[in-house]
Design a protein around this nucleic acid. Structure first.
Length: 261
DNA sequence: AACAACTCCAACCGCTATTCG
DNA sequence: CCGAATAGCGGTTGGAGTTGT
């Protein structure tokens, strides 16, 4: 094993090691990209050129963004896929830093496999354990009023936006209410409400509206995002828990801030 | 605790398009 | 124009990690 019949070392396959990554990055930073087969040889990597190219383009290349597909990106993927079909590279070209491979995986695992759920069948991925109840009750006190009817009216004025990303959450696009996010971020709920926008990827209706109802419950309000906002300057603000009072579940989230560019 | 089922994603494969001598 | 080499694309798979029973 590990060698061809001619005595040459067999070309390595499988996951890349840190050492290989460093060699590839080091070589390209010094010599630039080129013929990938030659590059692999010249760099001393026992990989074929295709493998090197894929590794570089999808993971090592500067500017590649991984994971944490934002609601804006999710919406863009859906729209672009509807228009272009499985043209992953063309779709990726519209999403700075995203690769065709990632978008393809995202589509197949998050969108295609899980079509938007009807709003009436609220999924409840995380039932609140007893220990969460006290926290939830505290959150409820601040969340309840501001996140209902008043929230929708406050959207649309800010170019900043905030994305509350579920952590280890089985369903994409679940976001906490703006007041909870504001509490987590340590900012005033009133001022945050004008800046906080979000969008549920699993929402079936109301895309063109200023707010929507999610599949999780009535408490979450959403508005259209400025679609280009996700590109750069993402800032992690805080992390914490969110609580859906209506449907009685909770989850963890991290809050990202996309400053007005 | 152990096992099964499921999810996600990195990487491979095969094919087509493009470039170059 | 032709054929080989290279680059790019989209489909598929293997396996690690997670969740459910």
């Amino acid at each position: 094993m590990g060698r061809t019949c001619g005595g040459e070392p067999a070309v390595r396959k499988g996951p890349w090691t840190l050492e290989e990554d460093l060699v590839l990055v080091g070589y390209i930073s010094q010599h630039g990209e080129g013929s990938w087969d030659n590059l692999a040889r010249a760099a001393g990597l026992n990989r074929n050129g295709k493998s090197c190219r894929l590794r570089w383009l999808n993971y090592l290349r500067p500017g590649v963004r991984r994971g944490g597909i934002t609601p804006a990106e999710d919406a863009a993927i859906r729209e672009l896929h509807a228009a272009l079909g499985n043209k992953w590279s063309k779709i990726a070209a519209h999403l700075p830093g995203r690769t065709d491979n990632e978008i393809k995986n995202y589509w197949r695992t998050r969108i295609q496999r899980r079509p938007a759920a009807p709003a009436s069948s609220a999924q409840q991925p995380y039932r609140a354990p007893a220990t969460a109840t006290a926290t939830a009750a505290a959150m409820t006190a601040s969340e309840g009023a501001s996140s209902s009817s008043s929230a929708a009216a406050s959207h649309g004025s800010s170019a900043d936006w905030w994305y509350v990303e579920p952590v280890n959450h089985p369903e994409q696009g679940a976001h906490c209410s703006q007041s909870v996010a504001a509490a987590a971020a340590g900012v005033d709920s009133g001022s945050a409400s004008s800046a906080l926008t979000s969008r549920d990827s699993s929402t079936t209706a109301g895309v063109d509206g200023q707010h929507m109802q999610t599949s999780y419950g009535d408490r979450y309000y959403y508005s259209e995002l400025s679609s280009a906002a996700a590109a750069d300057g993402v800032e992690m603000v805080d992390a914490g828990s969110f609580w859906n009072v209506d449907d009685d579940f909770w989850g963890r989230f991290q809050m990202l801030h996309y400053p007005d560019s």
